[in-house]
Nucleic acid binder design. Structure first.
Length: 560
DNA sequence: GCCGTTTTCGGCCCGACTGTTTTCAGTCG
């Protein structure tokens, strides 16, 4: 069985190769679009295929449909293989370097015959890049910096990419004969935003049965190492996994010892030694024997949680069930995929009692940002819809662009009319820390701004955030009652757990928002919750756990 | 290569910024 994302990965790579080869840009876009909609697809591609419905997928026409069928049937695509023969994989890898696009990569490949990052780095050091047509010393420098960055990231992947796959694997294992239980442990259980591999502890008295079960997993790529106690290998998309087999009676202790960070584990081991505790019927019982509260996995990072657990003063962390609304979503009025009505329906189906519609503002042309007239049209629609509902409220809003100079993309008299204003940066990422900080604080100082969206603009494993003096921003937000967003998208998780922790300490409120651009993405709020929990946040710190009247009152009474 | 109450061809989100030039191509969001 082939995963949707493996199909998408092949189509995406076809697009990349065509781009380097200088093929028709619209053809390239078509492959990209198909790959994108397959990734976002709610159902299994193979099911659709069996029902003869592949063509219903957005961006899939005749040609791509037959290519998908070939992948589903044979596991690979001839066209893709032929293209790979023309452009080595190492050349494709160069596209991951920031600032390096297909044209530049092509120039490097054709003139210097470089086919991997190592040779590229050597060439950059030997000052050969600057001699190429259209390239200069700056590009050469950026290549060196870029390769350095890629190497420092290594083989990491966002939790959002790996968690669904890891869960599927773990569920499959737990259904095996002779297997009592299986649970995800390590950094995935701690819900770290970026992880290296999938660790699973399995309770079984028959290691051989576990090995057989692993070997039968449909997304298994290969097994590198197999012993009685541990099985290592790779599954879908090349993710490394480690299955640790323990006897059922050892399972609770194994859970505890494989979940926390290294530092956390060392301290726990000391406590166990001192208390003479070596086992327990459950994780909770082991903590109890140690005279501690049970520590939620997200906190097991040695940031003071053990002391707090001993003192029985651990925070009561926020839960997803406490979220009452989403304060940052997009619709097809701008760059969202679904209508306002569909987005509201999704919010209601998630059990929310309110949602803020925050489409982009006018200057963001690429997203068809709303101008004043269209914003007013949308406000009228929202008012109409609100009249028809008694148990749900749509808050009118905007994600207003913070311009380069710190002014906003709409004048105050427009923003005043809205229930909620999220202000975010979408341009000029490279400003100096002083300018960027001044820019954001200007937005915070505007009394119409309620929430600062994705504060640093970071994209995990891809882009560091822009340089901002976080301390100053938190101080300003605290002064003005401005809310900081935890953008729940697993690629962003912005603000980070560290910033959330600091914000809470200073009394700054947080909103956990999905920033959904399609209905299904509202469920990504899950990752924002994990991030908030890792930042020690409680429900009261998060404004969208509050009932609507409390939220509105807070916004109303912010210092002007 | 996809898509269509502007259907079977001719469009396909667009503007800012960067680095290279000395008027603009390539990259990015």
């Amino acid at each position: 069985m082939i995963d949707n994302r493996e199909v998408a990965a092949i189509l995406e790579e076809v697009a990349n190769i065509l781009e380097i080869l200088g093929d028709n840009p619209y053809k390239i876009r078509a492959y990209r679009k198909a790959a994108h909609s397959i990734c976002e697809l709610g159902e299994d591609l193979e099911d659709l295929w069996r029902q003869g419905k592949l063509h219903t997928v957005d961006g899939v026409g005749k040609a791509i449909q037959s290519k998908i069928e070939e992948i589903l049937q044979t596991g690979s695509l001839k066209y893709h293989q032929e293209l790979l023969d023309r452009v080595p994989r190492g050349v494709l890898r160069m596209l991951d370097l920031p600032g390096l696009g297909p044209r530049t990569v092509r120039v490097i490949y054709e003139h210097l015959g470089i086919t991997n990052l190592n040779d590229l780095l050597e060439a950059a050091k030997a000052r050969k890049i600057r001699e190429l047509p259209g390239l200069g010393a700056k590009t050469e420098y950026n290549i060196k910096k870029g390769i350095e960055m890629l190497e420092s990231i290594g083989e990491t992947v966002t939790l959002g990419t790996v968690l669904p796959i890891a869960r599927d694997f773990c569920t499959f294992l737990s259904g095996g004969e002779g297997i009592e239980k299986a649970e995800l442990v390590g950094s995935i259980r701690r819900r770290k935003p970026v992880v290296h591999d999938i660790d699973i502890v399995v309770a079984s008295n028959e290691p051989e049965m576990v090995r057989q079960r692993v070997a039968r997993y449909r997304n298994l790529k290969d097994i590198d190492e197999t012993g009685d106690a541990v099985i290592r290998g790779r599954i879908s998309l090349g993710f490394k996994f480690e299955v640790i087999v323990v006897s059922p009676s050892d399972f609770p202790m194994a859970l505890l010892l494989t979940t926390g960070s290294k530092e956390h584990k060392e301290i726990m081991l000391r406590h166990m030694q001192e208390a003479g505790v070596a086992s327990g019927r459950s994780e909770a019982e082991i903590y109890e024997k140690l005279g501690m509260q049970w520590i939620p996995p997200e906190l097991r990072e040695n940031r003071g949680e053990i002391e707090q657990a001993v003192a029985r003063r651990l925070p009561l962390l926020i839960n997803q069930s406490e979220i009452k609304g989403d304060l940052h979503i997009h619709t097809d009025w701008t760059d969202g995929a679904h209508s306002l009505e569909q987005m509201v329906e999704q919010a209601r189906s998630m059990g929310y009692s309110y949602v803020a519609v925050t489409d982009h503002s006018q200057s963001l042309k690429i997203s068809r940002g709303l101008d004043e007239k269209r914003l007013h049209d949308q406000l009228r629609l929202i008012a109409r819809m609100n009249e028809e509902m008694t148990d749900f409220r749509i808050l009118s809003g905007i994600e207003v662009d913070i311009m380069r100079d710190g002014t906003l993309d709409f004048p105050d008299e427009v923003l005043e009319k809205l229930d909620i204003v999220v202000a975010s940066i979408h341009s000029a990422f490279h400003l100096s820390p002083e300018e960027q900080t001044h820019r954001i604080i200007s937005a915070i100082e505007n009394p119409n701004v309620d929430i600062i969206g994705h504060l640093t603009g970071r994209l995990l494993t891809r882009r560091a955030g822009y340089q901002v003096d976080i301390e100053k921003v938190i101080k300003a937000a605290s002064r003005r009652g401005t809310i900081l967003e935890i953008n729940a998208h697993p690629d962003r998780l912005d603000i980070s757990e560290e910033v959330a922790f600091e914000a809470r300490k200073q009394g700054v409120k947080v909103a956990i928002n999905s920033d959904a651009h399609q209905a299904g993405d509202m469920s990504l709020i899950e990752y924002g919750i994990y991030n908030a929990r890792r930042g020690w946040l409680q429900a009261d710190d998060v404004v969208n756990t509050w009932p609507l009247d409390r939220l509105l009152q807070y916004l109303e009474n912010k210092p002007k």
